[in-house]
């Protein structure tokens, strides 16, 4: 996997003890980085295991003296129909992600590989939509969905997110690295444009597709304000809306319960990430370009 040059360096580290010390220092730095990156998440997790009276103590409690995992998590599981919320969230995020992967890679391919008149302007027009903050579009967009009779439906949550300017931009940038010689060779063989896209361009873009899939799924999974506007019925709530029930209001927070909910909310995202991560490990090296 690693580049040969870097492997060579690593091999030579074994030679001198001075380099060994350097290696230890490097390892220590990586461990330090890992600790810094993990600590806040650890703190969130450990908070979700604590009883209320161990929450905001001075000095802080790093390892609960009294565990309250069962109480906190069973509270979350019993107080709200969490399975229902999971399902709603997953349905919305999955439909939207699949649609976005398809539309983004296709549009990215067309924008990058096919010379259409005025496409740069169209492309810039799509990118520009990212620059208008969502809060001002919210009300007009809500009115559109009202007229489509989609307020208070799950379709209203994903129908506005079937394509993504961000995704199109991302896929176009990565299509730039697809060697055109491969595409042209297929064109000479008489392959249709769609099959060139699907059979040649797409397999070369598994890593960016995985990245986009993860990002978009996370983005949709984490959506709060739009579902808040759209959904009134308890049955149609997504997970972030459902978890609001643990905010007690009046500036007082039940941190242990909020964190228990938040940790449960993270699980699907982690799963999607782990599924997608395989595609980062595999790269273009497998699909080969040795000719």
């Amino acid at each position: 996997m690693a580049s040969i040059a870097l492997q060579a360096t690593r091999r030579s580290t074994r030679v001198s003890s001075q380099r060994l010390g350097l290696g230890a220092l490097k390892a220590a730095l990586w461990v330090a980085l890992a600790v810094v990156m993990l600590f806040p998440t650890y703190w969130g997790l450990i908070t979700s295991f604590k009883p209320p009276h161990e929450l905001n103590t001075d000095p802080p409690i790093f390892w609960p003296q009294q565990w309250s995992i069962v109480e906190n998590y069973s509270f979350v599981l019993t107080q709200i129909p969490i399975a229902r919320y999971y399902l709603n969230s997953f349905y919305v995020a999955a439909v939207s992600t699949l649609a976005v992967l398809f539309t983004s890679s296709l549009a990215g391919y067309i924008f990058e590989e096919i010379d259409l008149k005025g496409k740069e302007y169209l492309f810039m027009g799509i990118i520009a939509t990212m620059m208008v903050p969502f809060p001002v579009r919210m009300i007009p967009l809500y009115i559109i969905f009202r007229d489509l009779h989609l307020v208070n439906t799950l379709a209203g949550l994903y129908l506005g997110a079937l394509t993504s300017a961000y995704g199109i931009f991302l896929m176009r940038q990565f299509m730039k690295t697809v060697p055109r010689e491969l595409l042209d060779a297929a064109r000479i063989d008489g392959a249709g444009e769609f099959s060139i896209f699907a059979r040649i361009a797409m397999p070369l873009c598994t890593a960016p597709l995985a990245a986009l899939g993860i990002f978009h799924f996370m983005y949709e999974w984490d959506q709060f304000v739009w579902p808040l506007l759209m959904i009134d019925d308890g049955d149609l709530r997504t997970l972030p809306l459902g978890l609001v029930a643990f905010r007690t209001g009046f500036g007082v927070q039940d941190w242990h319960k909020i964190m228990a909910g938040a940790m449960m909310g993270m699980i699907p995202v982690i799963i999607v990430y782990l599924l997608g991560q395989r595609h980062f490990v595999r790269g273009i090296t497998l699909t080969g370009l040795k000719s």
């Binding site: 808040l228 506007l229 009134d232 019925d233 308890g234 809306l241 609001v244 029930a245 905010r247």
Partner: peptide
């Protein structure tokens, strides 16, 4: 329907 406190008026307004 219980709406998150901080965003209650956002939802109301819209």
């Amino acid at each position: 329907t219980v709406v998150a406190y901080d965003e209650l008026y956002t939802k109301f307004t819209t």
